[in-house]
Nucleic acid binder design. Structure first.
Lengths: 123, 123
DNA sequence: TTAACATATGAATATTTGTTCATTCGTTGT
DNA sequence: ACAACGAATGAACAAATATTCATATGTTAA
């Protein structure tokens, strides 16, 4: 009872922001969408993967070239490429021994460059 | 020597993709930008923070209300809000005992909704 | 088949991260 | 001053993560 009252007191005070909580709750992103969004952003939330995507934004490239460009071990690069591939951010094409990677998702480029712009315009 | 040749052989084979590595390297996102991009995306790469932002996208809200909306402890919410505030994704306004949070960055909304669209249109 | 090579993968490890718990900091009302 | 409340914080812990190492695939050439 004491607890409930405390909650209500706060809800009252916050009602001053012109909407009540149930309205916000209804318009909020649902659990599933939140999870998907987070999963997507998490994939982009690592310097190595950002660089991989940044490189593939310019050109289709094989694993070895990505290793040279990022100055990283082959295994590490391969693991991250698999990660990106599982999320369909990146796709691969085999040609003999070498495997070429490229972006699988046009939206990534938009999201990527939109955020790049944002960073440039925020001193 | 043997190693160098191996590298060159691979570079040769990859030259077939119409650009050479030095050209790609020059056009690639630099280390600093990659780090900033990753930092930004990492902030968005967690379900809790996605939900927080999702709620604040609709309305300015106090910590307690966010706790109720997300069904989470006050401490956890507060920690995540600080995280978002350090990256200037979110800002706060004090009013007596309660602190109201809102989005600090218009770009976030763009990035957020662009990615939401993307998720909706990918079966 | 054998050797050489490009890539993939599993296990191990060190680091990072999200939440909880306990406590503290400010503010308001008594 | 005191108690009550909303929010912030630091330490601790469990879970997730990125890289390395060693090894395994699969492909090509000899």
């Amino acid at each position: 009872m004491v607890d409930k009252q405390a909650v209500e007191l706060c809800e009252d005070s916050c009602a001053g922001t012109d909407t009540d909580l149930s309205t916000v709750k209804n318009r909020m992103v649902d659990e599933a969408s939140a999870a998907e969004l987070a999963e997507m952003f998490k994939a982009l939330g690592d310097p190595t993967r950002v660089k991989l995507i940044g490189a593939l934004l310019i050109n289709e490239l094989c694993v070895h070239d990505l290793c040279v460009l990022l100055d990283m071990g082959q295994s590490a690069v391969s693991h991250q490429l698999r990660y990106l591939r599982n999320l369909r951010i990146v796709k691969r094409r085999k040609a003999g021994k070498t495997v070429y990677y490229s972006l699988d998702d046009a939206h990534i480029e938009q999201i990527f460059s939109l955020t790049l712009q944002h960073l440039k315009h925020s001193h």
